[in-house]
Structures are given as structure tokens and as C-alpha cells.
Design a protein around this nucleic acid. Sequence first.
RNA 1: GGGCGCAUAGCUCAGUUGGCAGAGCAACUGGCUUUUAACCAGUAGGUCCCAGGUUCGAGCCCUGGUGCGCUCACCA
Length: 499
Amino acid sequence: MGAPVQAGTLAPMTEIAQKDRLEKLEKLRAEGPPPFPSRGVLATPTAELVEKGGTAEAPGPLIGETVTVAGRMRDLRDFGKLIFTWLNDKSGRIQVGLQKNRLAEWWPKRKLFDSGDLVAFTGELGHTQKGELTIWATEVTMQAKALAPPPEKWHGLADVEQRYRRRYVDLWASEGVREVFEARSKTLSLTRRFFEERGFLEVETPTLHPIAGGATARPFVTHHNALDSDLYLRIAPELYLKRLIVGGLERVFEISRNFRNEGLSTRHNPEFTMLELYQAQADYTHMMEHTEELVQHLATELHGTTEVEFRGERYDLRAPFQRKTYAELFREHNGCEIEDEAAVRARATELKISSEVQELGYWRLAGEVFEATVEEHLTGPVFVTDYPLPICPLAKESPENPGYAERFELFLAGMELANAFTELNDPADQMARFEEQVASKDPETPGEVDVDYVQALEYGMPPTGGLGIGIDRLVMILTNQDSIRDVLLFPTLRQKPAE
RNA sequence: GGGCGCAUAGCUCAGUUGGCAGAGCAACUGGCUUUUAACCAGUAGGUCCCAGGUUCGAGCCCUGGUGCGCUCACCA
């Protein structure tokens, strides 16, 4: 005997609106079957049944066999002594036919079962007169009574806020959502295999950093009580991974969540996933090869082709990608040389670039002009190479092109996907660049020098190439999703006020 | 943070010039053994996001707020 549902024990929406389902719950508790049994069943994925069921004209090997499926029941079509419904599971769905003459015991209980309930069915696999593969149920088990009703059946959840806030509904009620996250999972697993096969070791470095380094971004701050010290959520794993290169691990990568206390947009989430990779005896040209080969490999594995569609445009992800220098692109889109300070300053004024940025120094300013004028035109995929050295505090200067760093970023659809360089391994040079950063007025640079990192370099880091790839953005492109929120299961949202 | 837009039944959405709060789906009752967005007949369901204001009268107009989306700024 189940106790009646007490007021205040369920979500307010359910208590107000779902009296019918709550009454059914009472009945299930009093008379059975139990609404929330403890044990699951051994079920066959519906996709396997569809595959081995065949068509009415060409029946498959499982036709006539007794099978069991489990999942969410949706969309009942009641004919009086016959009910059709869909049973949805992770792999797909299959029709179930419920007939009075096969279910004598269950039949009087049928009204206690609703669309949205989690149910297991056992029965004989066959086809209907119209040729639909169907399980003719002889056994029906409630697995969990749904007290909240499913969304409207053919629009699903359309309100994007509801989709993000209640992803646990969106995943089965909106078409294509589960597939995006399956593709995301596959992307991660293929990426791991790709680099493992190239001799890389997957490592885990700290999320809590005493100094927020390795990138320029405002960090989240937290506090450790026992140590009585502030810590920062990592903005990048870079400096730890390079310590491991000093440690002799030679090839390492990490797929980590990074945290940046900055704005949200269709391309930015405060926590996001980054692949970072470091390889001894390599430079940025090797990183370009890894990048284009990985991207091509992922597209081919996921789609069987290197052609993908994103935001209505087609892109060919076949390697090798185009390569263009930063200075060359700057000239193309601004009509002046990046080193022509007077002309570039005039451009910045024209573009209404804020005076605060102007104070951060010439090369930061030129960088702003580049971002404002060039990036949106980079449909790509294209590697932008050879960035001005002053905006690359962790990269090595190009021996052929003094004043510029051996660095590239990969752009696609105007979006930065990857960032890589030949790593700076001269400790004195690194120290000088850190000190310059600390002295700058930029609120996003670290407040103190990471002396321990310089110390690590003093033990000697071999020539090394490093690469970072934004996994969320890569998944956006591979799954044709316009917003980063659509490739994050639970994107960051403003907290809902208490109801 | 700025601009633009949206917020109405569990879900998807209408709502005219300011004049009784609407539809489809879901739910409930009845009918139906081959549907697949089943069908037929009926019933019930509302803090019109919140708080003020204007008005005889506000879902609609005004002010402020909240949430969400897009966009700009920000994000090397």
C-alpha cells in the first residue's frame, strides 16, 4: 500500500496540473503493478529488432520469435480492443500492438498506463496488415510511472529555454538532439584514438590553479579553506602540459574543461572543452598536419565524406588546408601594412576600437583591427600563420621572420577552431615576456609571474610544438549546430529565480 | 552592459480598434481489433511572466523589473 502523495513532495507544475496521473499512481500503489519496481529487464535494442525483423514481404530471422523491449512509451492509438503505441529506446523505436485477447490480465489495468511512462513489453515479433514491424505484446511491465506528461507529440520542445533547462526531456522529445550528443561522444573517442595511435599519452592536470596562466582571460576565483588560499579555475592547461614535456613525457594530450569568466554567445560558454597537445621534437608545422588530418579524419568517420554543411554553407574539410600569413590577410582586408603604425591607428579610429584597447600597446591594437576586419571573412578552413610576436607570450619567434611568432590559428566559418605554436623554451625570454604581461594594464593577463613554470624551463624543454583545439566548436561544425549551447548537454544559463 | 524581439492552458500557438480567454495536441468520459500526426462524440483545464500606472473597462496601451533568443560590445 502506497501512501498518498503529499502536497509539496513533487514539482509544483506536476502537483497542480497532473491530478489524473497522481490518481493513477495511487491506484498502481494500491492494486499494482508497482509504479517504480526495483529491477530492470533484459531487453533487446529496438534498432536490432528493426534490423532482424525485416519487412512483411521479406521477413527477417526474428519474425515469430518472442522478444522483450524496454523504454519510453509514446503516442497511444486506442481502437477499443486493440491499442498501438511506440516504444522508444536509445537506439530507435518499434511499434507495439496491445490486444485484449492476448493480455487478459493486463487489459483492465490499461488506463493506468500513459504516454511517457517507462514500460517493458514482451511479445511475438510480427508485422501488421500495413506492413509495420510490431511486437504483439503478451506481457506489459511498468518500469517507472511518468507523473509529468511528455511535450506535444509532433513539435516536441520548441522553446529553446525549456530545451536547455530540461535537457532530460529534450533528449527524447526533440528530433535529432540525441544524435548530436552521440556524435560529440564519437568525436571525443575518435580524437583520443587518433592521438594515442600517434604515440601520445593522455594525462590529467589540475583544474585548480594558483595562478591563472596559459591564456589571456578573466578567471573564476575560488577559495581553499584548509590552505586558506585563493585558487583559480583553469583557463588553459598549457603550462602544466609543458611541464610534462620538461618531465620527458615527449607526447602528451589532455581533453579538459576550461573556465573563462567572460560573456556568453553562440560561440562562447563559460566552461568549454579543449584539446591540448604537446609534442617534443616538433614545431607548429607538425601541429598543422595533426590538425588538418584530425579534422579530415573526424568528418570522414562521422559522415563518410569531408564535405560538411554548416550554417547553410558547404565546407570541404579535406587536408591540406589553405595557409595564409597574418600580415598578408591584414593587408588584403585593410589596404595597409600591419607595420605601418600610423595607418593602422587610423584604421582603429575608423573602426571605433575603444581607447582602452589603444592603451594596451600597438600590437594589441593591430590585433583588434585584425579581428574586426579579417576574421569574419575567414570562411576556410584556413590556417592563419605567423602572428606578431608581442601578442604571443608563449610562442617562439620565427627564425626566418623576426618579429613574428611561429604560430597559427585555424579558422572555419569565421570561427577560431584551433591555436598552435612552436613553444617558447628559453627561460629568460619567457621570464621577460611574463614580466611584460604583469606590467601591462590588461585586466585579463595574470597578476603574477608563474615562476615555477620558468623554473621548469630552466631544467630544459626540448623543441616542442603545442596545439589547442576547441572541441565544442569542432562538434558544432561536424553536427551543423548554430549555437555552442546545442552541443553542450547543460549549457550555462542564468539561474532561474525560486518559484 | 547596449539595441532589437519574445513571454497566453501540460505542450505548440492564435488573440482584430482596448470590450465575456481561444484552437490543435496531451488529459478525462463514451464508441471502435490493423493504426502509425488514427478516427467520431462529449468534458475539463488559465497568476494572459511579475509589479505599478492610464482607462468605465487592459492579454492588448504606458513605466519599471525578471527570464529567454538574436545582435553589438567583450572574448589575444
